[in-house]
Design a protein around this nucleic acid. Structure first.
Lengths: 136, 136
DNA sequence: ATCCGTCTCATACTAAAGTACCAAAATGAC
DNA sequence: GTCATTTTGGTACTTTAGTATGAGACGGAT
């Protein structure tokens, strides 16, 4: 909300400044009126694009872009997060072990810890929870 | 590509039109120069917002909605698809059975058929495959 | 040096998941 | 009505998944 007020304030301010410049240019005759209008047009075009991108970017953030901050907040270790990603790819414990050059026992330990930390009962639920938190 | 050319053509055209209007207004003295600049600013601001929204909208399209056509193509029956959705929510066979008022045996049968039709070895893999096909 | 956290692995166990095979009831098409 | 498909459910069995517990190795912090 504060940012919106600030940006719109700056927008109005720049508009007034352009008014003054144009008036001065008109009186002094240094600048041609076409040039002033062209500059105004370009500047406001860019402002429009920029503001729009900002607002749309905020809308899009919820979808996509993994939030690694939350991984730390959940106390998930590097290995655990790595295993979590493999789980979401649909691999079995055995397959994950082979892929990461670890024993199945190790993967089971990691999986158990993941389920505890994500508060999930099953690996499928862990996937769902992780995706909801934008960790995957 | 064609649309881009057309929109930029119209953009340049409107710029020229505004030049003419401003020049005419300047000569005739009907319009104040501030007003002309303000109109130019507003118009190009709107154009900027509009063009940006259009281009960003196209980027977002690829993440589309569920494709029910492919559900049929995979030979998934209504019940099977329903069970598949519950699996992706992380529910166990027992829980799915309770939710849909069916026995666990029935769910197991459905799950086995789903795995066959999706060519998956595990339910986690089925989730991954289904999401890749935009079925979930 | 000691403590802490992570990573590793093992054994033993329980609980789900998944397969195979069968079969009855319901549904809709012909 | 007959036929094919779907839906439902069961038994018996194998395979994964997940829990509990313990323990050695290793690196970083105090």
């Amino acid at each position: 909300m504060k940012k919106t007020v600030i940006t719109f304030g700056l927008l109005i301010l720049s508009l007034l400044v352009l008014f003054q410049i144009s008036k001065y240019a008109f009186v002094s005759g240094d600048l041609k009126i076409e040039l002033v209008i062209a500059i105004v047009a370009i500047v406001f075009f860019i402002i429009g694009v920029y503001l729009n991108k900002r607002s749309l970017h905020q809308e899009r953030l919820p979808e996509r872009e993994i939030d690694l901050t939350k991984v730390k907040a959940l106390d998930l270790s590097d290995r655990e997060y790595e295993v979590l990603k493999e789980i979401s790819l649909g691999l079995s414990n055995k397959e994950i072990g082979d892929k990461l050059f670890l024993s199945e026992s190790t993967i089971k330990t990691h999986v158990s810890n993941i389920l505890l930390k994500l508060n999930a009962k099953r690996r499928t639920q862990a996937i769902q929870i992780a995706k909801e938190m934008h960790i995957l």
